[in-house]
Amino acid sequence: MDIAVTGSTGLIGSALVARLRADGHHVLRLVRPGAAGPDSTASDDTASDDPSSDDTAEWDPSTGTIDLGALEGLDGVVHLAGAGIADSRWTEQQKDRIMSSRRLGTTLLSTTLAALARPPAVLLSASAIGYYGDTGDRATDETGAAGDDFPARVCQVWEGCTAPAQDAGIPVAHLRTGIVLDAGGGALAKQLPFFRVGLGGRSGSGRQFQSWITLRDEIGAITFLLERAAAARGGDGTPVTGPVNLVAPEPVRNAEFASTLGRVLHRPTTIIPMIGPRVLYGRELADSLLLTSQRIVSGVLADAGYEFEDPVLEPALRAILDR
């Protein structure tokens, strides 16, 4: 397959590029003018292992420019780029940066794909389970209603900006990703130093649900969706479209996550006072990250036939940490 990727230097993007190359596919990375490497994603800046091995095409959402010809005839586009939602406290300026990066980039890409003579077989556009807001103890699949907090509003705008591609008949899937677990980046990498010295633990009551997915299942699910769309273009089945919750089958409460990670690391766990995160990140961001309960499940992936490599938390953490 010929696949274009935005945000190809982040935790997810770099792993996806490596997997696609290993599987024999060709990757076109969309990069900003003058950039030494591809765009960063919403979560990380980690570079892929050999960026020179792939082709690049320029795009610049801030000016609305993109290499139109490079996108003709692709088998799929994976759009991951966007400002990190947890990079710094949510000032009004930072909130605008988060929202604008998603609106401008997704709109530019979507309208460009809609204008192609040979559009891709699918657009997989990043989103997040933040779409649902706080779901409490209620198990919520892709039919769940949107929330009304800042992350939910971001996700709604983000997904809405793919409308030009959808209106042009391009199959579009919104990748509503949960907490991606990997030792090399993301939330787990930030937690590990504290847990390794016995200072990690639950946040607040610990009863809030966390919906998680390992990095290898995140990449596995994305490649599964790409392959499904390519097969559909060849007349075999139909592509998966609409919202797709990229989460493992078993969400866990925050206290269970903390105790499981402590057990895997053979370290005690404690209670994390919220005063520290609130001082560091501001109350709104800290509470959104640590106290929001999201019991999200994925009906779409299960119905499509995707088989998780890491469906259960403790074996997943042991595999990630080689324990």
Rank of each mutant, 00 (worst) to 15 (best):
D44A: 05
P151Y: 05
P119V: 06
D134E: 08
S288N: 15
L74G: 06
Q191F: 14
V31H: 15
W212S: 06
G220I: 13
G235P: 09
S293Q: 03
L16W: 06
L313W: 09
G184Y: 09
L30M: 01
S40E: 12
S203W: 06
D44P: 03
C155T: 03
L313F: 10
D67R: 09
S298A: 10
G186W: 01
A126C: 12
G82M: 01
G64D: 14
C155A: 15
G262I: 08
F150W: 13
T63L: 09
A114G: 01
R253L: 08
S62M: 09
E218R: 08
F209I: 07
D50P: 01
P171K: 06
L225D: 05
A163E: 15
D55M: 12
L116K: 00
I296N: 05
A189T: 02
P268W: 12
R118Q: 15
V297D: 01
A36K: 12
R89W: 13
D310A: 02
G73M: 07
A258T: 00
L123Y: 10
A168C: 13
G276H: 08
A221M: 15
T6M: 09
L199C: 11
E218T: 14
V244W: 03
F224M: 08
P251Y: 00
G186V: 01
A286F: 07
A145S: 15
A117M: 11
L317V: 09
F209Q: 02
G234Y: 04
G201N: 03
T238W: 00
G24M: 02
V297T: 15
D60P: 03
G7H: 12
M274A: 05
R283N: 11
A258F: 13
D49S: 14
G204C: 06
W158R: 06
V5D: 00
L124A: 02
F308K: 04
A230D: 10
A229L: 06
V17L: 12
D39Q: 13
R318V: 08
G276E: 11
V78G: 03
G160W: 04
R278E: 14
C161M: 14
A18L: 02
H266P: 09
T111K: 14
D39M: 13
R216G: 04
T107Y: 07
S211A: 15
E142L: 05
R318L: 04
P249S: 14
L301Y: 10
P243C: 01
D217V: 05
A128I: 00
A229G: 02
S100N: 15
M274Q: 10
V247I: 05
H26G: 14
D322G: 07
A57F: 07
V300W: 05
D303I: 04
S205L: 05
G206L: 03
P151G: 04
I170R: 02
S101E: 13
V5L: 13
F195L: 07
L199A: 15
R295K: 14
L20Y: 14
V297H: 08
P164V: 05
S127M: 03
R103D: 11
R97D: 14
A86D: 02
G144V: 02
T260R: 03
L301I: 06
L215G: 04
K95Y: 05
R153P: 04
A145G: 11
P51R: 08
R138G: 00
Y306I: 04
G178R: 04
Y306R: 05
G204Y: 06
G169R: 08
F150P: 02
L80V: 02
S203I: 03
I275K: 15
A189S: 10
